[in-house]
């Protein structure tokens, strides 16, 4: 099977779906890059991280739509287009920017179907990059998937590897509900086996990236490779760690998580989103209320501290959950 980076896998998914369905359009600032100005390359960027490179050259300006820096109009236009027959993929660039356009997602797109009595369909994908690790500081490093997950009407995807990213994005584009697709910056360069053809991965089905007996780690996005590394290290010591990657936080594979904890009796949740009211807290509440009797130890949460994200690499490194903290949490769970 060919190897691809997650960046290439995402590009692949968009290209295949745009070939398959003329209603799929890509909308965002610099998804092409190079429009206007004094000349230079005609497709200068292909997304600021190069994720959409080549798509404008292939599909042209009618379907790869470069916009001004105007997030409310990007997401609002995409929502209005989705409600009326297109399947837009709107790019937010950095997920942090949801703050300047949240109304269009939260009050509009997410609510059309319910608010209009089941008569609306809003096949919208809002994608963007998220996550710390690049010294991009407080306004370009957040992972706000917990905020989206709290909204009834949105679906939320947090892929952790290239194979999943491609399959989940194709599912997202074909889905008839609004989907927020969160791409972790630290993972764009991650390489993995990705088939050439289109394939889908259903939402709400967790992936067990490691199987184990003693403790369950539920981890998301960039935390999954870290949890896997901890599992591999501790296995050599005789601690058998199961790693569960939910892949989507809405819908959430509650059954898959509960089943794993029932099997291991211990739970560590690693979540980059927030120190309060994050996905870790949501999953902990799920297991505490529905899986309490299978627990042999208190649930351990590994999250960032309740602070904005610092700029200095020295501080950012301390902010983002790392393997040492995940390992310590597993040992605490095992010791109880």
């Amino acid at each position: 099977m060919p190897k691809r980076s997650m960046r290439a896998a995402i590009n692949d998914a968009i290209r295949l779906e745009m070939e398959r369905d003329p209603n799929v359009v890509l909308i965002g600032e610099d998804v092409r890059g190079g429009a206007g100005g004094t000349g230079g390359e005609v497709e200068a960027y292909g997304g600021v991280m190069g994720v959409t490179k080549g798509l404008w050259t292939k599909f042209g300006s009618a379907r790869v739509i470069d916009t001004p820096i105007t997030e409310s109009a990007i997401v609002g236009m995409a929502a209005g287009a989705a409600m009326t027959g297109l399947r837009p993929i709107a790019e937010l660039m950095f997920m942090d920017f949801f703050g300047v356009c949240y109304d269009m997602l939260y009050n509009q797109a997410a609510k059309f179907r319910y608010m209009f009595g089941g008569h609306a369909r809003t096949p919208l994908v809002v994608r963007g990059m998220m996550g710390a690790g690049f010294s991009a500081a407080a306004q370009h490093s957040q992972a706000p998937y917990n905020v989206f997950t709290a909204v009834a009407g949105l679906k939320v995807v947090v892929p952790s590897n290239p194979y999943d990213a491609k399959g989940l994005l194709i599912t997202a584009i074909r889905d008839d509900d609004p989907v927020v697709f969160c791409e972790h910056k630290l993972l764009y360069g991650l390489s993995g086996e990705v088939p050439d053809e289109a394939y889908t991965i259903p939402f709400g089905e967790a992936n067990y990236t490691r199987e184990g007996e003693d403790v369950t780690i539920v981890a998301l996005a960039a935390m999954v490779p870290r949890a896997n590394a901890v599992a591999d290290k501790l296995r050599k010591e005789g601690i058998s760690v199961e790693v569960v990657d939910p892949r989507t936080t809405s819908p959430l594979d509650e059954e898959g998580i509960l089943e794993s904890v029932e099997h291991t009796g211990r739970l560590v949740v690693v979540d980059e989103s927030a120190a309060r009211a994050g996905i870790a807290h949501d999953i902990a509440a799920l297991v505490a209320s529905q899986g309490f009797h299978s627990l042999k130890a208190p649930i351990q949460l590994v999250t960032p501290p309740h602070t904005p994200i610092p700029f200095s690499p020295a501080l950012e490194k301390a902010w983002l959950p790392d393997e040492a903290r995940i390992e310590a949490a597993v040992r605490t769970a095992m010791a109880a």
């Binding site: 409310s72 236009m77 009326t84 837009p88």
Partner: peptide, 24 residues
Amino acid sequence: LGANAIVGGAAPLAIGAALTHKTK
């Protein structure tokens, strides 16, 4: 496409509906 309780909310949505017409 709906009455809209967010003041100013219709304008971004309407340009999306216009984009659908333009694209098709």
